[in-house]
Amino acid sequence: MNSPLNRHKWEPYVWLLPSILLIAVFVVFPILIVFKLSFSEISKAGVIGGYIGFQNYKDAVSLPAFKTVMLNTFWWVLSVVGISTLLGFIIALVFNQKFHGRKIARAILVFPWATSLVIQASVWNYIIKYEYGSLNSVLLNLGIIKQAINWRSSYQIEFIWECGVGIFVTVPFVAFCVLSGLQSIDGSLYEAATVDGAGFWSKLFRITLPMVRPSLTVSTVLNIIYVFNSFPIVYTMTKGAPANKTDTMITYLYMLSFYERRKGPATALSVIGFLILCACAGIYMVTVMRKEEEQ
């Protein structure tokens, strides 16, 4: 028989085993397969051939659309994560105040986040449609505009719309993360600060921000991963058209794989994306661990 002490040592691993198995089968194993595929020749019909070194990677980075797509991905992640973090923070500050209907307001805030992205993107597609979009009909009926406006007149504007929808669906998540952080701040801190003569801004920067920083870090890193990997908004709204000008890396590699049937470079691109995200997550882990050590 094991002594209670011995059992205590192995017991956590037994409880962890099911999740470890699931992660191994559904996450680690597919990742390894993709790594292997990225170094293999893959035919148009999907038949997997032999090892070809870094050829797929060379093909991927020399694709004509590669630069545009990487740049788009950068702006997509930066604008969606950046702006939604800022807006989410402000909304959280407002929602942390006491006012009538706060519960309802908080419930409504969840909607954009809780609705499926495909539905969100399709609805926005209808809203900004030139011919019978609701935005044009509302503005026309209110007499604000005299003629319907083409809200998607260029690809730059279409990309801005996609980022806008991305921000719209991401803000609630940030707001709730920050809100949970705000609620854990002891009210006496603010009282003490007020007694010492601190104003709104100094309370914000010296109490609120430092206290919610852990929640903000979590939401930012998770958002970078979600937004980078987000497929439905871009695919539903433009499919990357015209000529990959509104593609992000994820939609582009899908088109590359399943429309152009160039699976080799597509697999290499997905590995590149994975490594970029690993780097982001790594920076996050290091920062968080450092913080924990300091504390």
Binding site: E131, S153, Y155, P242, A243
Partner: peptide, 11 residues
């Protein structure tokens, strides 16, 4: 370009 068609043919 002459405006004879739907305005956003790429989408």
């Amino acid at each position: 370009q002459k405006g004879y068609t739907n305005p956003n043919p790429a989408t």
